[in-house]
Amino acid sequence: ELSWTAEAEKMLGKVPFFVRKKVRKNTDNYAREIGEPVVTADVFRKAKEHLG
């Protein structure tokens, strides 16, 4: 699991709890794919757009 900024964690907190774990995993995987060592708010937004 990658490191997350406080802002990205806050955004994740707005995701319904029953899918939060999956969203975190998918976002981590997306960040790795694009070469990001940390999940930022920008990476979170891009993952959301990319993953739907």
Rank of each mutant, 00 (worst) to 15 (best):
L2F: 05
F44C: 02
N29M: 13
V39F: 00
A41G: 09
A41Q: 06
F17L: 12
Y30C: 03
K46C: 07
K46H: 07
P16G: 04
D28E: 15
F44M: 04
E36G: 03
F17E: 09
M11Q: 06
F17C: 08
T27A: 08
A47P: 01
R24H: 04
E7C: 06
L51W: 15
E49A: 13
L2M: 11
K46P: 01
K10T: 11
L2Q: 05
V19F: 13
R45M: 12
Y30T: 02
T27H: 02
S3T: 14
V19W: 15
T27R: 02
W4V: 00
A6L: 12
D28T: 08
H50P: 04
A47F: 13
L12M: 03
Y30K: 02
V19Q: 14
M11L: 15
V39T: 02
T27S: 04
K14Q: 11
V43N: 02
K22W: 15
T40H: 03
K21D: 15
T27F: 09
Y30I: 03
R20T: 03
A8M: 00
K14I: 06
W4P: 00
P16V: 04
H50W: 13
G13I: 10
G52M: 14
R32H: 06
E36A: 15
K46A: 12
H50Q: 09
L2Y: 06
G52H: 13
F18Q: 11
F44S: 01
K10C: 11
A47E: 02
R32V: 06
K21H: 14
W4T: 01
V19Y: 15
L51C: 10
P37D: 11
A47S: 06
V23Y: 07
R45Y: 06
F17Y: 11
V19P: 03
F17N: 07
E7H: 05
A8N: 01
L51R: 14
A8C: 02
K48L: 15
V38R: 07
F17P: 09
K46I: 05
E7F: 04
G52K: 14
F44G: 00
V38Q: 08
A47G: 04
N26P: 01
E33V: 09
N26F: 15
M11H: 04
G35F: 05
K48Q: 15
H50I: 10
F44H: 02
D28A: 07
T40L: 01
L2H: 04
K25A: 12
G13S: 15
K25P: 02
T40F: 01
R45I: 11
P37W: 12
L2D: 02
V43S: 02
F18H: 13
M11G: 03
S3L: 15
W4A: 01
Y30D: 00
F44L: 05
L12T: 00
M11I: 06
V43Y: 02
F18L: 10
A8R: 00
W4Y: 01
A31C: 07
K21L: 14
T5H: 04
T40N: 07
E9A: 08
Y30W: 07
V15T: 06
W4N: 00
V43G: 02
N26A: 15
E36D: 04
K46D: 07
F44W: 04
D42H: 07
R20V: 04
E33L: 13
K22H: 14
G35Q: 06
A41I: 08
R24A: 04
E1A: 13
T5M: 03
P37M: 13
D42N: 07
E1D: 11
D28P: 00
L51V: 09
F18T: 09
K14F: 08
K21F: 10
A31E: 00
T5P: 00
A41R: 06
E9N: 06
K21E: 15
F18D: 09
F17S: 09
V23Q: 04
T5S: 08
G52N: 14
V38W: 06
V15D: 03
K48C: 12
V38A: 06
R24E: 03
V38N: 05
T5D: 07
S3E: 13
R32Q: 06
E9C: 10
D42Q: 08
G13A: 15
E1L: 11
V23N: 03
D28H: 04
E33S: 15
G52W: 10
G52A: 14
M11E: 08
V23G: 01
I34K: 08
K46T: 06
A8V: 02
F17I: 11
H50F: 12
V23R: 04
F17T: 08
A31G: 03
G52E: 13
V39M: 02
